[in-house]
């Protein structure tokens, strides 16, 4: 059974961690967009998005992440991704977005990554 879509946020680390689970598609991507926009609007310039528990991701989700990355970089920060599932990483690879995003295998590595 597919894991239900959910977003949770964690603070108190070097950058806030937004963890997503389930499927990010045309129906659920707007929720992620709102959460990430709120983060940047609230003054967080660098955000870690943990996609380790995401089972599906489409172009709408990619668009949301690209938009958030742009806002973070315009504010002088970065949007770092945690991806562990090969099939999720594949979507970034075939769209050429592995060259755009800072992608890491664990949250700890994403938090410790040097600025790009």
């Amino acid at each position: 059974m597919e894991q239900a879509f959910d977003i949770s946020e964690r603070e108190g680390t070097a950058a806030p961690v937004v963890s997503v689970s389930g499927e990010i598609d045309v129906a659920t991507a707007p929720s992620l967009r709102n959460r990430l926009q709120a983060r940047v609007a609230g003054g967080d310039t660098t955000v870690v998005v943990d996609l380790a528990h995401v089972s599906f991701l489409d172009s709408t989700a990619l668009g949301v992440l690209v938009g958030a990355l742009k806002r973070c970089r315009e504010a002088g920060g970065d949007l770092r991704l945690v991806i562990t599932e090969p099939r999720i990483l594949k979507v970034f690879e075939i769209t050429g977005l592995t060259e755009v995003f800072s992608i890491h295998p664990t949250v700890d590595e994403a938090l410790e990554a040097p600025p790009r």
Binding site: D58, S59, L62, G63, V91, I94, T95, G96
Partner: peptide, 12 residues
């Protein structure tokens, strides 16, 4: 059509 959609379809 979104570029990302085209790239995904091309690949898959």
């Amino acid at each position: 059509v979104d570029d990302l959609s085209i790239r995904i379809l091309d690949a898959l």
